[in-house]
Design a protein around this nucleic acid. Structure first.
Length: 415
DNA sequence: TCTGGGGTCCTAGGACCC
DNA sequence: TCTGGGGTCCTAGGACCC
């Protein structure tokens, strides 16, 4: 049986784990603390009960909030945390390692920062299965203080369905096992849009054909499904019928690395934008080197504020392909800056920009270039030294120079 | 005034080949 | 100038996920 483990209100739970006294108080995690400019990314149950929702902009949720004042709603204080992805990543790794150590779950893989899948070699004994899952769940919760919900079924998609019910009904105590005999009822009660893999576009199509529940969907014949849908939907259809059709690949290296930000204030100043871009590129390049990779492609993009319909809108992107795989910050920053200049247009207020590193290859298996520039070799050594310092201090103490001078297209590591 | 930041996979169609 | 009938590989963009 497949088991799916999903952390409850993950970001909020991570903050509460650090501040246990807030367990019963409303807690929200926001994308940014700057000028109330963020949105709610995660919230615990007491915060939901106040009517707050994921995705709600802070300035709308707390109208008239002043800096340095507590966040209040209907006379209740809401405890506010700025998102801390590093922290959540660390806790996630901790969960990964304690479950692996336990050796109850086989083929245990991390699906996202707060979700895991694995297999438990028990087929026909729900009680035994439940005991195993409870053991894993208890271990995670006592060690990390992060509450989790678990679902188990014959396929990945059905296991996610089970977790959905584990969260929905408190009577399950966070564990829902969905054996074959309960599948029909579970799918009849499940709106199609709740199914993993069915997004907005599919949903519209399915509604036109009067498919409202997961059960309606799997009543369609395989002939119909194969003709009308692509392989993703066909796999979902199979999995809901109890046939394994999805394989989760283990990626030890990311295939793309992005660093993008929404600016607190818009800007049309090329120098300022390049300076931001340079720091994003540097961060992305560091991640790239940390996973011992090089990239063969870099894309930069910029966007105006799409919410400001009164202002002229502009969005564009540019991709640079490297002749050979690269990971040096200076090289990547130079390429990013050059690409950015080709899409930058004066007069537009830029709200969002970023860089994406793509076509990633392993640094160790890269072909050795016999004629590599000695300058490049020195650069690589310097880069390693810089990384070691920054790793030690857990922040960018030393970084590559940014482009404020348009004549400078080939910076080394400055300071 | 203030609206996130990442990822993966699939596929149609273009470029190129014989 | 006109002309067939295949292949493969690559890529941008869409759809989905958290």
């Amino acid at each position: 049986m497949i088991v799916h483990i999903d952390c409850n209100s993950y970001f909020a739970s991570c903050e509460i784990a650090d501040h246990p006294e807030l367990a019963d108080k409303p807690v929200i995690v926001s994308s940014s603390n700057d000028n109330n400019g963020g949105i709610i990314l995660a919230l615990n149950k007491p915060a939901k009960q106040l009517g707050l929702k994921r995705g709600l902009p802070i300035f709308q949720a707390f109208k008239g909030h002043q800096p340095d004042e507590p966040y209040m709603l209907n006379g209740t204080e809401v405890f506010f945390f700025e998102v801390d992805h590093k922290k959540y990543g660390r806790i996630s790794e901790q969960i990964m390692s304690i479950v692996l150590e336990q050796e109850i779950v086989l083929n245990f893989v991390q699906y996202s920062v707060d979700e895991f899948f694995g297999e438990i070699p028990v087929d026909d004994d729900p009680d035994e299965l439940r005991q195993y899952i409870k053991q894993v769940k208890d271990l995670i919760e006592t060690t990390t203080h992060i509450p989790v919900s678990c679902g188990s079924a014959a396929t990945y998609t059905l296991a996610k369905v089970a977790t959905h019910y584990a969260k929905q009904y408190s009577g399950y105590n966070g564990i829902c096992i969905l054996p074959e005999e309960k599948r029909e009822k579970a799918l009849q009660l499940l709106p199609i849009e709740e199914v993993w893999g069915i997004g907005r576009a599919f949903r519209k199509h399915l509604e036109r054909t009067n498919i409202k529940t997961a059960w309606d969907f799997i009543q369609k014949s395989d002939e119909y499904i194969l003709n009308v849908f692509n392989s993703t939907a066909v796999n979902t259809w199979k999995e809901l019928r109890g046939i394994r059709a999805i394989e989760l690949k283990k990626h030890d290296q990311r295939q793309s690395i992005a660093h993008t930000r929404t600016l607190t204030r818009t800007s049309h100043d090329l120098d300022y934008l390049l300076q931001q871009l340079s720091s994003y590129t540097s961060a992305a390049a560091f991640k790239l080197r940390e996973q011992h990779s090089c990239c063969q492609q870099l894309t930069v993009f910029l966007q105006t504020n799409r919410h400001r319909t009164d202002l002229p809108q502009y969005t564009n992107e540019q991709t640079h392909k490297f002749a050979s795989p690269e990971s040096d910050s200076g090289t990547l920053i130079a390429a990013a800056a050059q690409a950015f200049r080709t899409i930058y247009r004066p007069g537009y207020e830029i709200k969002r920009l970023g860089v994406i590193l793509d076509k990633i290859v392993d640094a160790n298996t890269m072909q050795l270039d016999l004629f590599e520039d000695p300058h490049k070799q020195r650069l690589r050594k310097a880069q390693s030294a810089v990384d070691a310092i920054n790793r030690k201090f857990d922040r960018e103490l030393v970084h590559s120079g940014s482009f404020t001078d348009s004549s400078d297209h080939n910076p080394g590591i400055t300071k």
